[in-house]
Design a protein around this nucleic acid. Structure first.
Lengths: 162, 162
DNA sequence: GATAATTTGTTTGATCCCCAAACAATCTCC
DNA sequence: GGAGATTGTTTGGGGATCAAACAAATTATC
């Protein structure tokens, strides 16, 4: 792919382009970092021959740690609509990683759980995520990572409180 | 909305739910912060009666600061495929904010530019983004914001370099 | 200078995420 | 027991994303 300046004739962009205020905007920087991290996650899993999105990983962890979770509770924990969750669970269930059991106490709800195969897969996924985490913070000290996480939590709280 | 414990009968989640390792994962915290910031952006603009996404704002800034930009150059700057850009530009153009001019020097490319109305709108949008930025970092000092942006840039670089 | 290769913008097709509204089944509350 | 709320699902409507194919136009090659 043409990575060289390529002598862009007119709308002069051989020269670096001007991003104006964008690099000083937290929202902009956050979005770009998130996008790069997402791409890294995808490539980490693709390289390992596994297919999983960050959202699916979070979902599986939540289901494993909270056996019998209902779809409503899970949707709330994930911050998405319950109707959005349905096709995601369908896919995970079709892959044999997760099951919707009948709740013995409430006929409306499903009791979610990982299958044995799902549990084993999650263990593997967790190792991959560990490697991914190391990569995306390879130039940060552990103190910096702690600081970053702390500041991000504050931003999240600030953003939500309006 | 039912914020009270609500006596969740069985799949016991009146108690806080267990997020396992998730809160220690940078990717997870980043994703949640980004999502909250995005929601705040949307509500800021909705409240002001304006309709714009963070991506559209970034795009408009780039076009204003780099007059005559081609779609390819813009797509590359945004990190998206050129085919993804087409419907986004269509919408902005339909709103009268932006035009695709014929490049005088290269018949293949379009020279993008904001319309006068688009320029005025961007000025207003920029003020809204400023207010939004203040809100999402209201509990952070300016030094903390600088630190956060610096660390996020490092993460982005780390994530990309693999 | 003529032909081949590349670049650009667009269309089409495929996933995916998201929400809102409506619906049947089920539960809770009075 | 009946009214009202909750749960999971379906349907409908936006978008975002990429990949592949194409025509038009520009470069590169000979």
């Amino acid at each position: 792919m043409g990575r060289l300046p390529a002598k862009t004739a007119s709308p002069g962009l051989a020269t670096k382009l001007d991003r104006g205020v964008l690099p000083t905007l937290l929202g902009y920087v956050l979005r770009r970092a998130q996008s790069a991290v997402f791409a890294n996650f995808a490539s980490t899993f693709a390289t390992a021959g596994a297919a999983l999105t960050p959202g699916e990983f979070g979902l599986m962890v939540l289901v494993e740690r909270n056996i019998g979770l209902s779809q409503m509770a899970l949707a709330r924990a994930l911050g998405i609509d319950r109707s959005t969750l349905v096709p995601i669970l369908d896919r995970l269930q079709a892959r044999g990683l997760l099951v919707r059991r009948h709740s013995p106490t409430d006929g409306r709800t499903h009791a979610l759980a990982l299958t044995p195969s799902g549990g084993k897969a999650l263990a593997r996924f967790t190792r991959l995520v560990g490697a991914h985490e190391k990569r995306i913070a390879s130039s940060l000290s552990t103190a910096e990572i702690r600081t970053l996480i702390r500041l991000l939590e504050k931003v999240r709280a600030d953003a939500r409180s309006v």
